[in-house]
Structure formats: C-alpha cells, structure tokens
Amino acid sequence: MTNTLEFGLDTFGDITRDDTGPRSGAQVIRDTLAEGILADQTGVDYFGLGEHHRPDFAISSTEPILGALLGQTARIKGGTSVTVLSSDDPIRVFQRFATLNAIAPGRAEITIGRGSFTESFPLFGYDMADYEELFREKSDLLHRLLTEEKVSFEGKFSPKLSNVTVYPRPEAPITLWRGVGGSPQSVVEAAMNAMPLMLAIIGGDPARFAPFVDLYKRAHEQLGTAMLPVGVHSPGHVGPTDAEAREEFFKGYAKMHEMVGRARGWGRLSRAAFDAEIEQGSLYIGSPETVARKIARTVKVLNLSRFTLKYSSGPQDYRTNLRNIELYGTKVIPMVRELLATETV
C-alpha cells in the first residue's frame, strides 16, 4: 500500500489574512500558486483547487492556476477539487484539460462533482430544478470525450454531436475522478464509468464510509472490471504541537463555518464541538505525529490510494498555511508511510 499511496493538498482559495486584515482575492491567487510550488518541493504528490463563485473564496477558474503550477514543476500532479460540471461545458472542460495535459503529460487531473454550493447555477443561467439531470448528462458527455476519439451524443442541455473529434487530442490519458459526498448511487455510477472514487469526508468518523468503499468494490466485481483507486478529501491543519495547531486553526475555521452556515441554517461552531471533531471525527489537526497517526488509520480502514488534506479553511493567517504545507510534506507524509509499513497504526 505504501508504495502506491499518494498524498495531496486541496484548497478552495479561501480569503486569508495577514497583519493588516484580509488579503485581496488577487493576492490569494498568487499565494495559492506559491503554495502549490512549495507542496511540490516538500514531496506532496497532488495539489487540488476547488471552484467557487463567492466572496469568501478567490478561485473561480482553476485551470490558469494549474497551468502556472504544472509549468513550473516537473513532478506534482494538479487537478480540481471539484469541477462543478453541472454548470460548465464538458467540451470546454475537456479542451482545457487536454491543453494542461500537453503542458504536463499525465499530471493534469479532473475531479467532477455536483459541488456543495449552488451560486454557479444562476450565474451561468442554469435552473436548479435541473440539478440532477444536468450532472448526469454532462458527466456522460465528458466521459465519452475522454474515452472516445469520435463522439456521437445527443442530450437536453448539450449540442448534438455526430462522429465529432474534439481537439486538442491528449497525448496521455487524463484521469477523471468522481467526487462523492454521501450518495450510494454516485458510488455505483463511478464504478460504471470507470472513474476513481474521491470521498469528501468533512465530518464524523471516516470509518463510517467503509460501506461506500465496499459498495464500490462490489460494483466493480459485478461489472467484471478492475478495482480503481479510492481517495479521501478532509480538512486539517498541521502545527508544531497539538495545542498550537488547534489554536491557529479554530478562529478562521469557525468564521468559515459561520459564513457558510448563514445560508444553511447551521448554528455557531462551539469550541467543544470543534475539539470533539478533531478527536473523534474528520478534522486532521495537531502536531505532525498526531495528524500522521490519524491519516494512517483512515488510509488503513478505507484501503485508500490517496489522502488529500484540505489545508485552507476560512480566513486563516496565510503564513500558517505555508508552515502547514511544509510540515505535511516533510514530516507527516514520511511518518504515515513508516506507520503503514510497520503496521503500528
């Protein structure tokens, strides 16, 4: 497991702060590029960017940042976390990632999902009543574009294609992951479309997702196809000590929880609930050893091929994000590999 296990970092481009207050969206985008380069330098395997269209996140277009990152590195993979395909154009998504794939063959990846926010629907003229149908149709078309050179397709929301080849043609396969938050049907669809499975686990004991992994495995067995990688995306923060990591992360994380919660009817996040989620749930916060032990347990319980830490959550101090990345790459990743190799999880 340890030879094939990959470690990633995710960010949505949360608006961070410095000594003078919130940093601008433009500065956060520049910071994100620097963070991706640092991730590559410290041994991280994957760097993912989430797409949002809100004032608390800076990244609405992932591919330009990924192009800059992949053009300045030689090893790290870059992709989305996630591409909100329902409100995008599958043909343009294919073309953008085929272009990235030309810049960095085999290193540009796509993760598609419905997304946890809906601002893109009215922004791009889509009706929320079509939420499910949009995603099904567009994911089908994108899958065909990635697996067939000549594509014929007809749908409600897409142009009719008759034996069409879309350019540029990828020189290397583009990996298409399916992001899943908690839908068994989505797990089965991922297996049916030969997509690796990325589980977004943002709360509760990660072991409760073991039935999803088992369902994914059984779906492949029934289809007669080989089991594909399974990954997990969860929030976290690495600090010098457990106490420092918690203090550094809580204020910004609670603020993010409050901003999102206004629209979703969430109550205020208490410090007790925060601490309980660290100790029993899916917040990976603490010293390098504490975070490494928790990641190793999740990897083992779910038999993962990739673990991705969402390192930026809310208006954190941008400097602690940089230190988080460095500690994750230089301390946590080697510790997890050692723990799994020695079976001391």
Score class of each variant (00 low, 15 high):
Leu142Lys: 00
Gly125Ala: 10
Glu109Ala: 05
Asp88Thr: 10
Glu248Arg: 10
Thr80Trp: 00
Ser60Cys: 13
Lys160Leu: 12
Ala245Tyr: 00
Gln185Met: 11
Thr111Gln: 09
Ser305Cys: 08
Gly78Cys: 07
Ile91Trp: 06
Val82Cys: 02
Gly125Gln: 10
Arg107His: 05
Asp10Pro: 00
Ala296Thr: 10
Gly113Thr: 03
Glu279Leu: 11
Ala263Asp: 14
Ala292Tyr: 00
Thr42Lys: 10
Met1His: 12
Arg136Trp: 05
Leu9Ala: 07
Ser116Gly: 14
Pro229Val: 09
Ile295Ser: 03
Ala190Lys: 00
Tyr318Asp: 05
Tyr46Cys: 10
Lys300His: 15
Thr111Phe: 03
Thr4Val: 12
Thr32Arg: 02
Pro334Ser: 06
Leu269Asp: 06
Thr225Gln: 12
Ser60Phe: 09
Ala263Ser: 15
Leu322Thr: 14
Asp275Thr: 02
Pro315Arg: 01
Gly71Tyr: 12
Thr16Val: 15
Leu269Lys: 07
Leu269Cys: 09
Val230Ile: 12
Glu248Ser: 11
Tyr46Arg: 13
Leu340Arg: 04
Arg23Met: 13
Leu70Tyr: 07
Tyr216Val: 01
His143Leu: 01
Gly179Asn: 02
Arg96Ala: 06
Glu247Trp: 09
Asn303Arg: 15
Lys331Gln: 15
Arg23Cys: 11
Ser60Ala: 14
Asp140Ala: 12
Asn324Ile: 10
Gly43Lys: 06
Gly8Val: 01
Pro64Glu: 09
Ser61Asn: 14
Pro229Ile: 08
Ser287Pro: 06
Leu322Pro: 00
Ala273Arg: 10
Glu109His: 12
Gly182Met: 07
Asp45Asn: 13
Asp45Leu: 04
Lys217Gly: 03
Tyr318Cys: 03
Leu38Tyr: 06
Ser183Glu: 11
Arg54Met: 14
His53Asp: 07
Met195Val: 01
Lys156Trp: 03
Asp317Ser: 07
Glu6Leu: 13
Ala341Phe: 03
Ser60Gly: 15
His52Ala: 07
Gly113Gln: 01
Glu248Cys: 03
Val332Glu: 01
Asp45Val: 04
Asp88Met: 14
Lys150Met: 12
Gln41Trp: 10
Tyr328Ser: 00
Val238Cys: 08
Ala200His: 05
Thr42Met: 11
Ala98Asn: 03
Arg268Gly: 08
Ala68Tyr: 08
Val28Met: 12
Pro159Gly: 05
Pro64Leu: 10
Arg268Lys: 15
Arg323Leu: 14
Lys251Phe: 10
Gly204Val: 09
Tyr311Arg: 12
Lys255Arg: 14
Thr147Tyr: 09
Met335Val: 01
Ile174Leu: 02
Ser282Gly: 07
Ser287Arg: 03
Asp40Asn: 15
Gly314Met: 05
Phe307Asp: 01
Pro315Asn: 08
Thr225Leu: 05
Tyr253Ala: 13
Gly224Lys: 11
Leu33Gln: 04
Ala194Phe: 04
Asp130Cys: 06
Ala39Thr: 03
Ile91Asp: 07
His257Trp: 15
Leu223Pro: 05
Gln280Thr: 13
Arg337Lys: 15
Arg17Ala: 13
Phe121Asp: 02
Gly204Arg: 04
Asp19Trp: 07
